[in-house]
Design a protein around this nucleic acid. Structure first.
Lengths: 133, 133
DNA sequence: GTTCATGCAAATCGTTTGCACAATG
DNA sequence: CATTGTGCAAACGATTTGCATGAAC
């Protein structure tokens, strides 16, 4: 496993403020929402720089990025519900035999006041081929 | 709940072939990969139409789309692992108190020969506000 | 002959990047 | 002064869409 070298970053008010904004909200904002908040303090702010700072904060482990975007959509003809395993090295996607548990939905429904209709479970790691090396 | 009116579609060899290709593979291909396969039979094929047919097949319930793309990235400052609930109506994302189960990784590891490092679990439905209406 | 299917090219949209200049250490 | 931060605009890449033509019913 290649150990990633942490880059050195200077102090940046804008980046610090970005982190504070993120820490002060329960919602999971988009880059654009954060941009709008920051805009009040930084009139000449650019969206590109918001992305740059968010990526740095992720790299530093200060925040999490929930990827709902930016890679490929994948398609499959196995239409009965099932879980997936995704190889982080070769990007292979495998169907899993683990039977989907409807009971999980009920558990979440009981601990919240949400109506839970379904869920999606994905495992990440190394597939048989990539793990053998 | 608004019931979606199913549109009527004619028979299309290209769309039928798209489904067959998808049904004959274990991998979870991207639109581009499917395009490359189809290209052998349809020399003048356009990628745009592959997307159109894939969307129709999804709408008809013949295939599943695994969205790893095409919406927003969301960010959050809660860096300890946790699961999410996503409201399908208002798109709110909520952190869940359900404790992440490392045991799930082991279960998958035992039933496959993959190295399982982590997983991601998301629930979908209606949040408290949207469910009340 | 009305509606759907298709190819083509342009548009869309979230995100990234190259460049020039300002700020940091 | 060497390096990082920033704004700006252009680039990128996956997906969608408008338009004109061809096929299905």
């Amino acid at each position: 496993m290649s150990e990633k070298v942490l880059k050195k970053y200077r102090k940046s008010n804008q980046r610090q403020r970005t982190l504070e904004i993120l820490q002060s909200t329960e919602m999971h904002p988009t880059a654009t929402w954060i941009y709008d908040q920051l805009k009040e303090d930084y009139a000449s702010l650019s969206l590109g720089n918001v992305y740059r700072n968010l990526n740095i904060l992720v790299e530093q482990g200060s925040i999490l990025e929930l990827k709902f975007g930016s890679t490929f959509d994948r398609y499959c003809a196995n239409i009965k519900p099932h879980y997936h395993f995704i190889c982080e090295k070769c990007s292979a996607i495998k169907d899993l035999d683990l039977p989907p548990s409807h009971e999980l939905n009920e558990r979440v429904e009981k601990m919240t006041n949400y109506k839970v209709l379904n869920h999606r479970l994905e495992f990440f790691g190394l597939c048989d081929k990539c793990n053998g090396e």
